[in-house]
Structure formats: structure tokens, C-alpha cells
Design a protein around this nucleic acid. Sequence first.
RNA 1: GGGCGCUUAGCUCAGCGGGAGAGCACUUCCUUGACAUGGAAGGGGUCACAGGUUCAAUCCCUGUAGCGCCCA
Length: 902
Amino acid sequence: MPFFREKAKQEARESQMSIEKTYDPSAVETRLYERWEKSGAFACDVHSKKEPYCIMLPPPNVTGSLHMGHALINTLQDILIRFQRMKGKDVLWQLGTDHAGISTQLVVERQLAAQGLDRREMGREAFLKRVWAWKEESGGTITKQLRRLGASGDWSRECFTMDEGLSRAVTREFVTLYNEGLIYKDKRLVNWDPKMLTAVSDLEVESKEVKGHLWYFNYPIEGSDEWITIATTRPETMLGDTAVAVHPENEKLKHLIGKQVKLPLVGRLIPIIGDDYADPEKGTGAVKITPAHDFNDFEVGKRHNLPMINIFDQHAKLNEEAPQKYRGLDRFVARKKIVEDMEALGLLDKIEDHIHAVPHDEKTKTVVIEPFLSEQWYCDVRGMADQAVKAVREGKTQFVPKQWENTFFAWMEDIRPWCISRQLWWGHQIPAWYGSDGKVFVAESDEEADTQAEKHYGKKTALTRDEDVFDTWFSSALWPFSTLGWPDKTPELARYYPTDVLMTGFDIIFFWVARMMMMGLHFVGDVPFRKVFISALVRDEKGQKMSKTRGNVIDPLDVIEKYGCDALRFTLANLSTPGRDIKLSASRIEGNRNFVTKLWNAARFCQMNGCEWIEGFDPYKVMGDPNAQTTNKWIIHSLRHEWSLITSCLEDFRFDLASSRMYGFVWNIFCDWYLELSKPILSGDDEKAKRETQETVAWVLGQIFHLLHPVMPFVTEELWGKFTGSTDMLMTRAWPDYSNDVKDFEAVDEIEWLISLVNDIRTVRAELNVPAGAQIPLQVKGASDETKARFERHAAIIARLARLSGVTHVDAVAKGSAQSVLGEATLILPLAEIIDLDSERARLKKEGEKIAAEIKKLDAKLGNKDFIDRAPPEIVEEQRERRAEAEAILARLEAAQKNLAG
RNA sequence: GGGCGCUUAGCUCAGCGGGAGAGCACUUCCUUGACAUGGAAGGGGUCACAGGUUCAAUCCCUGUAGCGCCCA
């Protein structure tokens, strides 16, 4: 009994260790993620002696879900995080979510609407309770998804922008800026969302080309029979006109300046003014001026001291400033009515079709945003913007790719005061209180405001708090330091700020990056990040933007389910060429899933062949051993080379190049050649060579796991465990460092020769339709002693890979043989019996033509005196060598043709 | 209108001042003891167009065209 029990135990152990035939990503991914997270390996260590490395996750909307753009940006961040962690840094990937004022409120309002409820009827408190409930309910979605993606961030430090600490930071921000005179209240035109009933910033407005009309109205000139014709895209706003403008140098119209027109439908007398804004080339040369409903007109109005007549209420319905018959009408209903009425009065000159840009809300893209006169809080960011520009110009923060700096500069240099108040309920309520006389008290708390008021009024006074909340970006602007504990002077802030890299999409350079730069410099005194990496936009395979309305959204989780997380991560990394959008196609992901499978099977092969990982294996010993296998020296040399390239690609954010190199190395070097070359040794009798090869194979495979881990964390971790039996986690192991520069160009030469040899023979065989299974003899003519030695050393490999029955060195070529040229030697396949002479002739002819063309090109170059005189000598020499080689090959190809001709 | 980017194999894209590359797709062959999610071989490109710089341009410069994005 004990014996069987022992045996069963041992078998169990073995099956747990051994690599199964197929890889099941979803089971493995979930298990490994839990293991990583439980181990505490994601957490930073503020007391660590290691160098810190920090990335702030751009906080996704708390109630949102992961889309492909998130998948991309978070994959790239995780690659850097894992890479730097392995490189021995104390890594902090700060995670968290954003309350996303408008979006979240919009979602909840819609939910309410579906139940026939309205937030106004519920009241602020009940509504907010509802939003918090929704946040609790859906807030976990995105974080679960991040986990599914393999994100190795520090969950223990997860933040939410409306957490107490972060809220305190926002209050401090506002109060400080207010006390510095950088925040003020002002009544001016804002972009108004008449559906959400809030101001929005310029950035939150999206222009859409809309087919509309240009209406030409005749405005009668007072005291004459004449009229002046104006063109407008918004007839309804005429009710708020307070002037008509013409260009002061407009020859045809300038005589009218100073006269008045009687505004139709209203009867108000308004002046005709001269202003450059009226372009004589555009429309009729005369424009109506409606200062309260157009940003340009607002400026004209200010220049000419025109009254501002606001004809809309907050729903963009006509108010009591409009004539009785229009009051209460929606702006678009009023538009129609006014056009009809103007026509009835005979004042409608004509209507033209007109395509023009109409501002829409950027969330739903359905509501037309209205320029609307209202009182809002503004932040004067001019000075801070200058500081931010200066920091970037000085290279304190660098954009990658660099061209985005221009975008940043362009916007910063043209920056306008930032409207920071929103008429929403979900968000940070503005810490401003008003006395009954309207006096403002800005303070960090109720109590402080009361104290201020008491001081001011000389007695306790009841205050009312401002109902508005801040623009969401007013709080996210603090993210790089509010998450680290600011305004307190925490050890985290001291250690991780400035952060190393910020990764984000170009679409929020203005919204977010610019504002973090400004606030970081202003409040912490240094840039918030050293590098800003701007990622590509993920499109569908036709190059269209993914959007719900188009229905072309690829859900990253579906992809992960189908192909595994590593395949998706690898694909995203591989496609992210700087400065180019990503067109994501299923075939690409599938191809990379196959890569994962390839790696899996390669590891399985290695394990089946007794290649056991030896901790502490010393590759330099193999390199220094004159009797070591050339294949092993070659692969060690190649791996070291690959390591240095992959490392520098990752350091340069070239995820595309890094992943391509990984793919090429694993598949085309390691699997296609190294493992194939190793097979005869692994199954041979030379115990020393076998052991050395087993060890080297295992070592190289282990290094591959390390190098691939940042991009493909799951399959590498799983294989690491299964292959090495190690209880260490790969994710916390050190990134390889082969600072000892091992090189062996002789081994490289030899293996490259070997590969060419096998390729040449395979080509001849395939083109001459030699049956794949047939073992044929090879004769070699003109081989040097070195080449002969190589044939000797690799006899088994050559026979196996080229399917040869044997190799002999000869002095003459048998009639009717197929021939190929390799270096100084001629390869002869005496196949007179089986080959098709015509196809061999055709093959040789084609080869010859190729070479001849090359010689011709080289001759032209070398015959050019300027080239000889002016090109660098080594280039000239290189071309000469190339020509000599080509010449030799051509000669032997011609000999082969002759031999065939018989 | 201003700015930026792109144009390389059928498709998606690397690359780069001196020999045109990958993946996918395609054709032919192969179930050879890791892998058919695989192996082997092959076809396929005036590197958008026109000028310029250079001994040499797919690459640098200028212009043109087409496409895309951002801003107004």
C-alpha cells in the first residue's frame, strides 16, 4: 500500500509540473492573477531602498467599462510597470477611478427617466444617494476588467476622485487659487447645455457639420425706404439683435454706418455700426449682432458698448425678452415661426442651403450647445500655462512622440480662462458661501466660512453654499499628487512625485495633461511626470473609429475570452507604432494567439527532452569552452544580442519593435532553428553534448520567459512554473542582465552557413519536386578545409534537416546533377534519375538572371568615378566584395547549366 | 482656412541615405516523435506623383494629389 501511495503522489506531482498538451488561457489567467495579487507583488514599498518608478493610471470613469482604448493604454502601462519591476525598481502603478461628473450624472438621469423620475423632483440629497448607489453597483466593473487584462497595479492604494482625501485636495486647490486671485466669478457667454442645464467648457463642445440654411433678411432702415440685407444661420436670435455691423471700409455699405434699422418683429431701433468683424466678402457684407447669443457678437458688443439682450431661458426656450407671441417656444420652433413671419412681412430676401459647423455636446452629440449669458467661476490659467510651456520647452517633461508637443504648445499659448463651475449635482461642491447681500466667502469648511462671515458682518450670519460643482477636470488635474496624499507632505509624495511616465490618448492632452502640468507646477513645484506617452487610437479593421452607434466596437473582454489575454496584449503592443492609429483585426490577434501556442509547445518539447532549468547556469562557461557545441554558442550569442535590442526598445517605448523582435526570435530563431538543430544532439549518444545542450536549451527558454513576461505575463508565468518547478514568481524575478558582453562571431558564421546550406538544399529539392520523404546523397565540390570540417561537425544535423543519405566530397560533377552554390563550394545533388531536367534548367536560369541583374547594378555603381572617389572607402569595398561573390556564383551557375546541357 | 500625420506586397503594417521586409492571405508539397493554432518551398512591390540635394534617395528637402485627424 505505501508503495502505491508514494507512486500516486509522485505521479500527481509530475502531472502538476508537466506541461499539458494544450494551453487553456482563461483558467490560467484567473488563477495566476489571484496568485500575483495575493502575494503582494503589486504593491509599492515606500520604505524601499530601490529606485522608485511611478505611473499614474489615467482614472477611467467609475461607472464605465473597459474599451479597446483602455485595453491598449493599460497594456502598455503594464508592460512598462512589469519591465521596471523586473529591472529592480520599486514600482508604483497608482490605480483609481474618476467620478466623471457629466457622464455619470447623465447615466443616472437616464435611469431615472426610464422610471419616470426627475432629479429635480427628487432633490439633491436623494439624487446623490442614488448616484452613489450606482457607483457602488457598477464601480467594480472596470477594476475587474483591469484585473482581467493583467494590470499589475497597486490595488491597495486604489483611489476615487471623490474620496475624502482627494476631495480635500480639490478644496485646497480652489481656496488657494482664490486667495491668490486666480479664481473669480464672472458673467459672460459660456457654452450652455440646455438639456443637462449646465455650463460646459470649450473642450466639451464638439463641432458637427450640419446641413442648414442661410436666411437673408431685409432690415428696414429707419427714416428711409431702403433696407439692409443680412444673412444668418440662426434666424431666431434676431430677437436679441442689438446692432447691424458693416466693415468700415466697405465701399458699398459704409455710408449706412450711423443710421439705424428698425428690427422687424420686435420694433426696436438698433444702430448700424462699423466693425472689422463684418467681412465685406462674406454674405451680404452686413451682419446682425446678437451679443448675448454668439461669441463673436459678444466681442463686437463689448467693443461698441451694445446692450446684451438674452432671449433664452436655461432650456433655450424664448423668454420674456422676446415678443409675446414667441415666448415659451423652443429655439427651433421659434426659428421656423420667425422665418414664416419674416416672409409674411416680405422681408425674407432668399434662403440658401448652407453647411456649417454647429456646436454639440460631446457626450451624446445630440444636443445643440447654446452660447448663453451666465455667471460662472473662472480660473485664470494664463500664468500657469506659461510655466507649463516653459517646463516642456526646457525638457523637464518630454512628449513621446515629440510632435505632440506642438499640439500642447498651440493650445497652451492660446489658452482662455477656464470655466470651472458646472450646474450639476454630482461632483465636488464649490466651497464658496454667500451672505444675504451676495458677499462671497471662500473657505475650506463651513466653520471657516462662518468665521469669515462673522468677521465681515460683525455678527453670526447665515450663509448659503454655492450649489454648483467643479468641472471634473478640476479635480483630475490634481491626480498625480492628490493620490499621493497632497496637500499633506506624505512620504509617498516625496518619493514618487514627479512620476516617470504618463500614458494617455491624444484626446485628453488639453483636458487633462495640460491641466496636470499646470497644477503640478503650481502646487508641488515640479512637473507631474517626466515623460508623456501619447498612444495611438484603436480603430476597427476598416480604419473606422470604434463607436457604439457604428456598432463596430470590439470588446476587449470578448477578445480575451476567445484568444487569451496574452494574445490581445501582444497584438496591441505589436501594433502600436508611434504616430499611427491601430487598425485592429481578428486575424492579427489570431496570429498572435498562435504565437502563444508556439511558445507553449516549444516549452513542452524542451521539457519532454530533459531540458531542466538550472538556477545559476552560467552561459559564459559554454561560451568559453572550446569544445562546446557551436549551436549552443550561437544561441547564447543571439539571445544576448536580442536581449539588448528588446531592452532598449522597451526603454524607448517602442513596444511594436520590442514585440516583433520577441516574435521573430522565439519563432524563427529559437523554434525554427535552434530547437531543430538541437534535436539530433538531444536524441544522440554524446552525453556531454547532450547535457550541455539540455542545459543551454533550458537556460535560453528561461530567458525567453523573462524577456516576454512584460508583454505576455500569463503564459510566461505559467510556463515558468511548469518548466522550472520553481516556486518563485516570474513577475518578481530580475530582468536579465548580460553585462558581460559574450560574443562569438565564429559560431554565428558557422551556424549561418549551416542554415544557408539546409535552405539551399531544401530549395533545390522543393523546386525539383524531390519527394519530401526521399533521402538523397549530397556531393560537395571545392569545399575548403574549414567547410569540410563544418560538414563533419554537423553531419547528423545536416542529414536530418536536409534529408540526406550522406555527404561526399568530389572533384567532378556527375552529368545531369542539380547544383547550387554556397560560398566557395558547389553543392551537387546527383539526381539524374529523378529530376526533371527542364525544371532544373529553368531554375538555374532564373537564379543566374537574378545574380546577373545584381552584377549589372553593382557594375554601374563601381563604374561611376564619383562613387569611387566620394563614397566612404568601406562602402566601395563592400560593393566590390559583393560583386566578386556574385561573379563567382554566376560562374558556377553557368557551369552547372553547361553540365546539365551535357 | 490654419496645423499635424499618412501614402511601401492582395490586406494590415515595419524599416531605412548604400543589397526592398514581417504577419495575414495566396500557390505547391508534407500528419517526419513539441506544435496542422504546425513544418518546408514559392509567387507577388517603378516604396503615391513631380522636381531638388547627394557619388548614391523608398528614406532628406520642396511642391502636387489622395486619405485621415486636430483646431477655427
